[in-house]
């Protein structure tokens, strides 16, 4: 355990050093686009997310934010452009392959497995890299049992970190809304991702819960050393925690920069408030 934490400290030191230089890009998205029939849902979307970066993606409803997530996670295949994670090209991968490569996501409308227990929801995500096949499952070999026990322990530890361990045996559908949102994030983390995509994690939360969430997202980034890309409508939250923000409107990137830059960009203000009185 000691050597492990030591190793991690060294690793995070390395990462902190690397984040300063702009060359250390973990997720490199180059001009991806997709159209559905004649509708160009997303055009030439680019993003350079560094290791342990915390970036935001905002825009009015229907701007194509979730479509970007769907492109990044393989739900849709991009018509053009390239996606690279570390040294790995992801372009045409299937969703489960992309998750295995290290991109995990949550969903805007909660998509837990309602009739599985809280623990099983986490275990399902954590078993991604399990090696044992059908035959050893059926005859319950020793190796298989070790793997399952390890998975159970790791999942419980993860639940403990987020203080949900008391609800481990409950059905996911019986959790409160706030806890369900939390469990979605835990489940995504259980896949051991390098990049975490959060789709409106603050939707439906009350002000206190939003404050706690903002704190959690930062801490998740620090403790798990994941890069976070956040879609959120709650502007104070986004402005507070994100290092850089990309603004989408009608599938086109209209602005990109630090929160302060984005907030003062006339095109962003126009997108959110309408294009001024003279047009009306």
């Amino acid at each position: 355990m000691k050597s492990l934490t030591g190793g991690l400290a060294a690793k995070s030191g390395l990462i902190a050093g690397g984040a300063a230089s702009s060359s250390d890009v973990l997720l490199d998205v180059r001009e991806i686009g997709i159209s559905f029939g004649g509708l160009k849902a997303v055009q030439k979307f680019s993003l350079r997310l560094p290791r342990a970066g915390l970036y935001g993606l905002i825009g009015p409803n229907g701007a194509g934010k979730t479509t970007v997530f769907n492109l990044l996670t393989g739900v849709y295949q991009p018509d053009s452009g390239e996606i690279q994670l570390g040294s790995q090209r992801l372009g045409q991968g299937k969703p489960h392959e992309i998750t295995a490569a290290g991109i995990a996501r949550t969903f805007q409308n909660i998509r837990l497995f309602p009739s599985l227990s809280v623990l099983d929801n986490v275990r399902l995500a954590g078993q991604l890299h399990n090696r044992h096949g059908l035959l050893s499952t059926v005859i319950r070999t020793r190796g298989y049992r070790c793997e399952e026990e390890l998975l159970r322990q790791r999942s419980l530890e993860l639940l403990q970190i987020f203080e949900l361990q008391d609800r481990a045996d409950e059905l996911a559908s019986n959790l409160s809304y706030g806890h369900q949102r939390k469990l979605e994030i835990i489940r995504a983390l259980a896949t051991n991702p390098k990049v975490l995509l959060l789709d409106e994690p603050a939707a439906g939360l009350n002000p206190q819960e939003k404050l706690a969430l903002a704190e959690s997202i930062r801490q998740i980034r620090d403790r798990f050393q994941v890069a976070v890309l956040l879609i959120e409508h709650d502007m104070p939250l986004v402005m507070k925690i994100c290092e850089r923000i990309t603004v989408l409107e009608y599938g086109i990137t209209i602005s990109e920069g630090t929160p302060a830059e984005v907030q003062n960009d006339p095109r962003v203000i126009a997108a959110y408030l309408g294009a001024g009185l003279e047009d009306a």
Partner: peptide, 9 residues
């Protein structure tokens, strides 16, 4: 959809 996103083939 969620199953795929969690790495299930």
């Amino acid at each position: 959809l969620a199953a795929q996103a969690m790495g299930v083939n």
